[in-house]
Computed example of a mutant assay.
Amino acid sequence: MTAQQISTRPQAQQARLSATRQPVAVGQSGHRFDDLRRWDASLQLGFAERDGVTRMRDMRHQGPLRVQRPFYPEGPTGACHLYLLHPPGGLVSGDALHIEAWVGKGAHTLLTTPAANKLYRADRNGVAWHQHTRLEVEDGGLLEWLPQETIAFDGSRGRQQIRIELSGNARCLGWELLALGRPASQLPFVSGGLEQHFEILRDGVPMWIERQPLDPTHRRFRGNWGQRGHSVQATLWAVGLEDGQATVEWLREQLEPQSCWAVTWRQDVLLLRYLGDSRQDAWQLLESAWTQLRPRLAGCEACVPRIWRT
């Protein structure tokens, strides 16, 4: 390729884009107000083990995504705890968050958040938000992905994607808790639309792939074969257990019997599901299950992040 071809290619691409785009409204601040508006933020983290200690080796960020200083409440050779910070506190139309975390061989990392994540109502043009999370764990590594709950306001529109890539005998335990609307304020989730994508792969082979559209106007949202009109749902996953089916039976005995949750073992992935109307009940279920599962998966007792109690 010649230097002239390199220099003219961006101009040609821009010309084609300009020909297909329609005039858009632009505010005095220079922000767009069409479906191409994007306010990006990204965070890239890397963790490596050395002499029995897991350290944050890499940290790169752009936009309003930060981390607090790593700390070790379980001792220097225990898990490296890290809080992910998003100062705006939520996503609005046009926001695009990209989170990547890499856990090296023999490293043990626990990632959580200091508060709930809020998905605000879309603007008058219905511009969506996007959140992409990619987690990679090397052979012998362990990652705990334990964010606090996500609250979707009525009218929110967006897409959430979580992709977990495991190598060798890497282990991972995580959860996602989603609350739809704000029933306490008499503001149920009756408009808008969310789409969730979950993927777990080991050595490139899919273990769990799931796509979930949440449209409050669709009959699935009210049907007994779907959401059944419930406003809170949660999923916990655990990968790397030595005896998954026995763990399922044991977990059913340890947790309080309720009709709003179930646990299964498929393709070497333990999945615990909650479907109900109480954020508090869902959180307590997740935390209790994590407390029971952690010794079996990590070989150490659960150490509750201090931020959960503040």
Results as ranks from 00 to 15, higher is better:
56 M>N: 12
279 R>P: 02
301 E>L: 07
222 R>M: 13
212 Q>V: 13
136 E>H: 12
272 L>W: 11
149 E>P: 01
86 H>R: 02
189 F>D: 02
181 G>E: 03
52 G>Q: 00
138 E>T: 05
103 V>F: 09
46 G>N: 10
136 E>L: 05
97 L>Y: 06
169 N>A: 13
45 L>F: 05
267 Q>I: 01
39 W>M: 01
131 Q>K: 10
195 E>M: 03
51 D>R: 13
51 D>N: 13
106 G>C: 05
175 W>K: 08
23 P>N: 02
296 R>P: 03
41 A>W: 07
104 G>V: 13
104 G>W: 10
45 L>D: 01
137 V>Y: 10
159 R>E: 00
56 M>P: 14
237 W>M: 04
156 S>K: 04
266 R>I: 10
166 L>Y: 15
67 V>S: 06
300 C>E: 11
151 I>E: 06
190 V>Q: 15
288 S>G: 01
285 L>K: 09
229 G>Q: 14
294 R>Q: 15
190 V>N: 05
293 L>Q: 03
257 P>I: 13
89 G>F: 00
286 L>T: 06
15 A>E: 13
202 R>V: 03
32 R>F: 07
37 R>S: 10
115 A>G: 15
188 P>M: 13
148 Q>V: 04
74 E>F: 04
79 A>P: 15
218 H>D: 15
292 Q>H: 13
192 G>P: 02
140 G>E: 11
53 V>F: 00
